[in-house]
Amino acid sequence: MHPAFSIIFFTSAAGAGYGLLALLGLLAPFGLLPASPLFGLAALALALGLVVAGLLSSLAHLGRPERAWRALSQWRSSWLSREGVAAVATFLPAGVFAIAWLFLGGGVAGVAGWITAAMAAVTVYCTAMIYASLKPIRQWANPWVPRTYLALSLMTGALLLNALLGVVGQASAWSSLLALASVALAWAAKEGHWRHCATARAVSTAETATGLGHIGRVRLLDAPHSEDNYLLKEMGFRVGRRHAVRLRLITRLAAFALPAALSLGALVVGPGALSGTLALLAAAAAALGVIAERWLFFAEAKHTVTLFYGAGEA
């Protein structure tokens, strides 16, 4: 599948934003985050800024962005519509939580925070299900996709939170541990997804696509046109697959190994300028790593339409 940068940025930025938003909503009511309104403002601005930037980027993918509001109408059948509804709906409790946390404190912030966290998780789940519900792409239509999306959202959110706490000199053992644990969880989920893609049998083949398998093995003799077309540009993308090994190495290093090592370092050196720098570097590495992961998620996905254009299986 063609890795459109607007979609890569949307899923990774909004994922990180929702991850951070969920953690703020979960943890602030327990008094685990700094009480300074400046910290709250910065953290909320970062979380909601990433969400809004991601959603705006997703509009760039549309052929008719001015009609985007129509996408909120078909939530009964469409995961994309559900994602849109959930994204818009999350702003309500998030707004209440933001005002309550920054200005009022107390019970309202607690309830609104937890609802915000739940809604953020639902939104990320809906995003993942857009892909996991597509049967023609077996690398996507499996339960590892929502697991990976949720875990990576939590991971990037936790790394951002640790970095924010580090910047204001309030990084603590628990926030570094949380970052470390979420990296381990996301790494395990991503390896599980890759293993599933490598071992699960292809469902469809050139033989089932043409129905000519009863004669024998099927190969393409002539394509319909001598030039590229929409189907091949959108569904037959091959560049990423050629660099898959190197991109997986980049993902393993930048998204998982480096953030884990840097978070562990922050944990070991204890609160201070050094641990803050390490936590910031961990978040920066993860940003790069998650973009590489998302690029691969698209580039390695193989659509069944390629069976009509010379692929043996998909």
Partner: peptide, 23 residues
Amino acid sequence: CIGCKLCSWACPYGAREFDQDVG
């Protein structure tokens, strides 16, 4: 239609094509 292209991803047979001119 908003031109999100998701229907073309959901079709296993490649029946849907995006008109980049009209969007």
